[in-house]
Design a protein around this nucleic acid. Structure first.
Ligand SMILES: [Mn+2]
Ligand SMILES: [Mn+2]
Ligand SMILES: [Zn+2]
Ligand SMILES: [Zn+2]
Lengths: 140, 140
DNA sequence: CACATACTTTAGAATAATTATAAAGTAGGT
DNA sequence: ACCTACTTTATAATTATTCTAAAGTATGTG
């Protein structure tokens, strides 16, 4: 287990624990998603274009969808939606909030928003999470 | 201007002020949406099925989409999205919040949630609105 | 009323995002 | 090397939505 190998461990393990064999395509996708400093937001189409534009041998659309879905089901990605019938994914899976600014999505750390009052869940239900979207517009 | 007429006024005026002539189809749609006690949430497909199932002469899909879009642009409907690439519309256009419970959407009155702390908008931007989604799950 | 004209409705085609299918490829284990 | 299960991929299918163009309707004018 050399340096490269242990550095890769995290994103390869995400594949394994999502029930996916770490094939070349999947490893590259997982590396692209998780082997970086900052988390980010993306659509599958954006992911596909970003990765395939740099490659001679393209990864197929189905593999992007399949891999993203598996990673999402395993909890390594969060899905959200804007008002445009496309799924967005977030590599930041911690509970946090967002600014929506004309289709652009910006994270708000969880501790930047606190509540004075929250409703209780209906009978037989409990709160799974609370997420805030702050929609922005230009000044003036 | 008889009783029927003035009772219809509200939803017919919504069409007029959305730039739409009050044709039969549009009046029926607007009546279905707004001439009722409680506000509700719907997809265009649901709206179409609810209305057309009771009718012999069906209203076309395009008319549903066109009418909903015009009413939304004029501010008589709010659009939102769940995690399934379909647009939902809300006849409650006041600022309010939602419980999401397995695809079911329940209103939370604005005054049921208050904030202790909120972030400021980035430079050159201001806050248009703040909306909270509380995701529910079953107890235990 | 008799048209002209502009606005509407509609069926069906087109598009975009996503999912399904099934054939060809690949990776381990023996 | 070989079997077998898992993968990838091209392509078809599906779903939500939008577009198009033709046929229908309303309104104003003489
Ligand atoms: Mn829309
Ligand atoms: Mn999905
Ligand atoms: Zn985020
Ligand atoms: Zn609502």
């Amino acid at each position: 287990m050399d340096k490269m190998n242990s550095k890769n461990k995290t994103f390869i393990d995400k594949l394994r624990s999502s029930g996916l064999r770490p094939t070349n395509q999947r490893v590259e996708i997982s590396k692209f998603l998780f082997d970086r400093k900052k988390t980010f937001h993306f659509t599958v189409e954006e992911l596909k274009n970003s990765m395939n534009s740099k490659r001679s041998k393209k990864i197929s659309t189905a593999t992007f969808y399949n891999t993203v879905h598996a990673l999402k089901s395993a909890g390594y990605l969060k899905e959200f939606s804007l008002e445009n019938n496309t799924s967005y994914y977030d590599t930041n899976i911690t509970s946090h909030h967002h600014f929506f600014d004309n289709g652009k999505v910006i994270d708000i750390k969880s501790d930047k928003i606190t509540f004075q009052k929250l409703p209780e869940a209906p009978k037989g239900k409990k709160i799974k999470n609370v997420e805030v979207v702050i929609r922005l517009e230009n000044n003036n």
